[in-house]
Simulated scan of single mutants.
Amino acid sequence: MDYFYWMFDAHCKERNMEVDWFFPNTENHGDYGKLNIISAEDESIESLFLKYLQENDVAYSHIITHFLEICTPFYKEAKQNTGAKIIAVDHNPRPLNGYPIKKKILKRIKGLLYSKYMDVFVGVSRYTINELKRDFGKQISPKCQVIYNGIPLETIKVREKRNMESPKFLVASHLRESKGIQDLIASVAKLSEKVKENLIIDVYGEGPFESRLLQQVKELNVLENFNFKGSSSQLHELFHNYDYLLHPTYMECFSLTLLESLAANVPVVTTAVGGNTEVISNEKNGYIFPAKNVEALKYVLTDLLTGKKSIQTNTRHLVENNFTLDLMVGEYLKLVL
């Protein structure tokens, strides 16, 4: 989201619109120095914002929230204290099997109590909009709008020629259970010795599940097939070194990682969850399999490694036409102009 924040702020300034950014911490890298950041430090963004309103003579015409819980008392207070147009953006994935019944009931009650104080519900995919309506009630439908995430294409190196005979694979993900990398490891362990003989999967990322994954590759005797490379801030320059991205996630809203991979002309093998199927078309720019289905993933890997299947399409074109940062920023500007 960094590039989005920077570009949105710059476009607002070009139109003589001032933006205050309420963040958990002060940021200094990239263009963050150009933003007027008000840092929460040890308190919540919601508490910081409401306190800031009380202590400062400031009038906001629009309030846009990202990554905050939706339909809470905060929105009522923000609306009553400012009269601003409130735009809530939902980036949050849902559990594969949905919320427990108690949480479903609580969300529906919150929708009835607080959705009237919110003017626009933005979902980053059609999936997200459907989940918002399921969470908070169909009364929010007229207020809902999809704005897809976008990425800056100029920073991403492009793979010119795909290797069909011995494809190279990467994973780029936070290492937690919901990303399903344990299923990838299990599927590789099921491959025949001949098929997995020269298979190496580079895994970029860190997280709380890393030690469990490392233990699993040892237990299943596939240590030679996985190379855990840690976190990298230069992934946009690395995707083009590979032929396929493996993304066996259980939960997703709309993944920037998928967009970056496609923009590098690297097809994606992923699950039919969240907004994945809104960007990945099976056997056209990637392969879709059911989440948690180790056998299905094994067959996809086998077909790719034996040359039975391959993607010939230039996957960058879809991103160029539909998921650029310029398009994303333009849609958000329409909400405030």
Rank of each mutant, 00 (worst) to 15 (best):
1 M>R: 05
3 Y>R: 13
14 E>M: 08
21 W>D: 00
22 F>S: 02
22 F>R: 02
24 P>R: 15
26 T>E: 13
27 E>V: 09
29 H>V: 13
30 G>P: 02
31 D>C: 07
31 D>P: 03
34 K>I: 05
37 I>L: 07
37 I>R: 13
39 S>W: 05
41 E>W: 04
52 Y>H: 14
54 Q>I: 12
54 Q>C: 09
55 E>C: 03
68 L>M: 15
70 I>C: 05
71 C>L: 02
73 P>E: 04
79 K>Q: 09
79 K>E: 11
85 K>Y: 08
87 I>A: 07
91 H>V: 06
92 N>P: 04
94 R>N: 09
94 R>P: 00
94 R>H: 08
96 L>P: 03
97 N>I: 12
99 Y>P: 04
105 I>A: 12
106 L>Q: 15
107 K>Y: 11
110 K>Y: 00
113 L>A: 10
121 F>A: 04
121 F>Q: 02
122 V>T: 11
123 G>T: 01
125 S>D: 01
131 E>V: 11
131 E>Y: 09
133 K>E: 15
133 K>T: 06
134 R>H: 09
139 Q>I: 15
152 P>L: 11
166 S>V: 15
170 L>N: 04
171 V>H: 12
179 K>A: 06
179 K>T: 03
182 Q>T: 10
189 A>T: 09
191 L>M: 07
194 K>P: 04
195 V>N: 14
198 N>R: 13
205 G>A: 05
206 E>D: 14
214 L>C: 08
219 E>W: 09
219 E>H: 13
219 E>I: 11
221 N>A: 14
222 V>D: 13
222 V>M: 05
228 F>E: 06
229 K>P: 06
232 S>G: 00
236 H>K: 14
237 E>S: 13
237 E>D: 11
238 L>P: 01
240 H>K: 09
250 Y>N: 08
250 Y>Q: 04
251 M>V: 02
252 E>N: 06
267 P>R: 03
272 A>W: 05
273 V>D: 00
277 T>S: 13
279 V>P: 02
281 S>R: 14
282 N>L: 13
289 F>R: 13
291 A>R: 06
294 V>M: 10
295 E>N: 09
296 A>I: 04
297 L>S: 01
301 L>E: 15
303 D>F: 06
305 L>I: 04
305 L>H: 10
308 K>R: 05
308 K>D: 01
317 H>N: 14
318 L>A: 11
324 T>Q: 08
325 L>Y: 00
328 M>N: 05
328 M>R: 05
334 K>H: 08
334 K>Y: 03
